[in-house]
Amino acid sequence: MKTWRYLLWIALAIALIGWPFVLGNKFVTHIGTLICMFTLMALSMNLLLRIGQLSLAQGAIMGLGAYGSALAMMSFGFPFWAGFLLSGVVGGLVSLLIGPVVLKLRGVYFVLLTFAFGEIVILSFTEWVDVFGGVNGIFGVPRASFFGHVIRDRNVYYLMALAMAAGGYFLLRAIYRSEFGAIMDTLHDHEELARSLGVDAMAYRLAVFSLSGTIAGFAGGFYASYFTFVTPMAFDFSNAVNLVVINVLGGISSPMGIVLGALILVPLPELLRDAVEYQVLLYGLVLIIFLKFMPEGIVGLIHKLRGKSDD
């Protein structure tokens, strides 16, 4: 049984790495890259949802990472690896700085505060034209490069995104299965219990918030070098909403749900490119139906079906 499982994982890994080279379709590879990027972002949101805090600033933090790495490479001549590293550092550091203040608030107030913070960040990107380029953003962000070799091949970008998403996935899985994860679950609805056992709840919240910010920052750094431009629009409030949709569709209880959610939802906008409204309508309807009838998401549905067949 166990050998089978390992073989399955290896087969899956080979398939995930190999398909773009076999298929050779640039457009499909591009969608694969986007799926990986959104998986990573949705995982960063999942960390927060697990402790019961919905942050609408997630897009803005990704944007700070993206603008940070773009400016570091373009204005200060940072090499790609340093700029990319900086994007994660910026995301994590901003979260670490605002965390002690914003995490004091719970529920609705936290959501509204992160919303206001996100709006301020986006407004700064839009209005501070000298530094951030205004509504048009920044064009000509250097592509990724390793050892002086500039990467142009889309397949390599896909592999980078895949590595990031897989890294995020296994990191979250390890965290959720550890003691840290168990404490995170208690923060969701039994915080008093955790605190009575001597858990410093605020420190855990801050750690989760900063980790989530770091992941979002890295996603932003990748975004900047993959698309070679950044605009304020890409990081606004709707970005955070999309992450929520992915989480609700997949089910927040397991990282696998996030992967499934991204796999289903991310290709839609690319397929419905000429009809953005239809895509948004579909997102909205999917979200309504799942919230109303399947609040546990696809993963919950799978568990239910399995539970019945096992009886």
Partner: peptide, 21 residues
């Protein structure tokens, strides 16, 4: 609160998209 908020978000984007269509 949390799920209620997500539901109103969903209602918001659905109405907006429907009117735009």
């Amino acid at each position: 609160e949390l799920n209620g908020m997500i539901m109103t978000l969903a209602i918001a984007i659905t109405i907006k998209a429907a009117v735009a269509i």
